[in-house]
């Protein structure tokens, strides 16, 4: 199929960006969205032009790098997928596709479609871990009984790949789905409960410091999240913070 692409081009973090139109031809419907972008970039390189910078690594929905805002939605129109898992069959021959970087003050653009998501790293560093000595004498995890229900919910929360689609989709650029997932994956398990109060306090404080917006429960994050992280995790984070504050 033949497509028109409208892509955000921005030289570097300081430059003023703009939308630029490109044409790509003979795109197979079996290609992933990133493969389509590769075709475009080959075309640009052959013409001696600067290829479109975009983040990617695993290309199988694990690393969470491939942030693109496609036709007004994070990771495009499909559900439960990252951009690398989005197939070109979701589009029609002759379509015009708008491609923008994830937008949030806390995710500044580095170049073109690449944004800096180290704000997520700093939130993780503020408490998204458990402090155990792993130098050889850790006890077997199976020696601590954990209910199936708690284990399942913790596992669901741990599915979060830190892609930032929740922030990008939220009208408030709120990071609460991400932070809710990271708080929940530990809060549900006995190993995590020891440091639960400090964890939620510090992670929320860091989240606020980074300039993310405030959740108003629109639910856009949950719909756009490639890993199906549910709003329940935000509610749990709210409860955890209330518990930690009294």
């Amino acid at each position: 199929m033949n497509l028109t692409l409208k892509i955000w081009r921005q030289e570097d973090s300081k430059a003023k960006g703009r939308m630029v139109d490109y044409k790509v031809t003979e795109i197979s419907e079996h290609m992933s969205f990133l493969e389509m972008m590769d075709v475009l970039n080959e075309q640009l390189v052959n013409k001696g032009e600067d290829p479109v910078a975009f983040d990617h690594d695993c290309r199988e929905g694990i690393c969470g790098m491939c942030s693109m805002y496609i036709n007004g939605e994070a990771h495009g129109p499909d559900r439960g997928v990252t951009t690398c898992q989005l197939h070109m069959r979701m589009f029609k021959d002759g379509d015009t596709i708008t491609i923008e970087p994830f937008r949030a003050t806390a995710f500044p653009v580095i170049k073109d479609l690449v944004v800096d998501r180290s704000s997520f790293e700093r939130i993780q560093q503020a408490g998204g871990y458990i402090s155990v000595n792993t130098s050889g004498n850790t006890q077997d995890a199976n020696s601590i009984p954990i209910s199936k229900h708690a284990a399942d919910e913790a596992m669901d929360a741990a599915m979060c790949i830190g892609c930032g689609a929740c922030v990008a989709s939220c009208k408030n650029s709120s990071a609460m789905l991400f932070v809710g997932a990271k708080v929940s994956q530990y809060a549900l398990l006995p190993q995590g409960q020891v440091e639960a109060a400090d964890r939620v306090r510090n992670m929320v404080a860091q989240m606020d410091l980074e300039g993310f917006g405030n959740c108003t429960n629109t639910g856009a994050c949950e719909i756009e999240c490639p890993k199906g992280i549910s709003l329940e995790n935000i509610a749990r984070m709210n409860r955890e913070l209330m518990k930690a504050s009294v």
Binding site: N71, G72, T98, A104, N172, G213, T216, G219, I223
Partner: peptide
Amino acid sequence: VLEIKNKNARQIAYVKNNGAANSTWMSRNM
């Protein structure tokens, strides 16, 4: 206060944003 804070959390707007795909009109226009 929250509306201003939330607006500041995204200073550059999307050229194309499909809010209706993932949230209700009511929730976006409180």
